[in-house]
């Protein structure tokens, strides 16, 4: 059964992401990558925790001076909701409803872009209002590396999902592209998983002191 074969709702397999050997390999390989990403982010978290509030003099801003609840809360809600919309997209993928899947992926991308916009505003604010920059202190370096690395993941995720949507717009769902959509949605959830720890460890724990 060729991966490019045309399917109908009735012939579409129940786990399209793992119905072909290529899909199975993508699935397993991608989770191995996520295991590696876990280690990578953990080492950035470790660095941040070790260098938190380590500044050269008293006139530098500390975590409790920088972070505010409203902005963090808004960013968190945007990203958590985008996780749900990408789950909706995969629900429609499993039901062989290409149009609805594309629509929910678009909502996911828009929410992700809004999150990224907030983060850019936030960094800009820290740099100009608090003189908290990448090179101002060890705290600054660790903060921008960790949160910026996550932001870069969001940007890559946006580009990835958008590219998939455009590339496959006329093709419709096949067993060739179903694993691609599935793996991109896994990546998006992983970004959310990392954000849950960032908003807890960096922002909330930073506000508590």
């Amino acid at each position: 059964m060729a991966a490019e074969q045309k399917y109908t709702e009735a012939t579409w397999p129940s786990s399209p992401e793992r119905a072909t050997l290529e899909g199975k390999n993508k699935f397993l390989g991608f989770w191995l990558f996520l295991g590696g990403e876990t280690v990578l982010f953990a080492s950035l978290f470790a660095t941040y925790l070790a260098l938190k509030d380590k500044v050269p003099s008293a006139d530098h801003a500390l975590a409790k001076d920088l972070f505010e609840i409203p902005l963090t809360f808004m960013a968190t809600m945007l990203l958590l909701t985008s996780s749900l919309t990408s789950v909706y997209a995969m629900y429609h993928m499993k039901n062989f409803d290409f149009k609805r899947m594309q629509a929910w992926l678009l909502v996911t991308v828009l929410l992700g872009a809004a999150f990224l916009g907030l983060e850019i505003y936030e960094f800009n604010h820290y740099v100009h209002e608090f003189k908290h920059t990448f090179t101002s202190s060890a705290f600054g370096s660790a903060f921008y590396t960790l949160v910026g690395f996550h932001g870069a993941h969001v940007a890559v995720g946006l580009g990835w999902i958008l590219t998939l949507m455009i590339r496959n717009a006329k093709r419709g769902l096949t067993l060739y592209n179903a694993p691609k959509f599935y793996v991109a949605s896994l990546y998006w959830h992983f970004i959310d998983v990392v954000w849950v720890f960032i908003f807890t460890v960096v922002y909330l724990m930073g506000m508590v002191g």
Binding site: F27, L28, W31, L32, L34, G35, G36, E37, T38, V39, F41, A42, S43, F45, A46, T47, L49, A50, L51, K54, A138
Partner: peptide, 26 residues
């Protein structure tokens, strides 16, 4: 296999964090 990958990564990550918060000081 997925759970094995993820929990292995988490274990290494947890040890890294434990190390950094206990033996790094400035």
């Amino acid at each position: 296999a997925v759970a094995f990958f993820l929990y292995s990564g988490s274990l290494v990550g947890a040890i890294t964090i434990l190390t950094f918060v206990t033996i790094v000081w400035l």
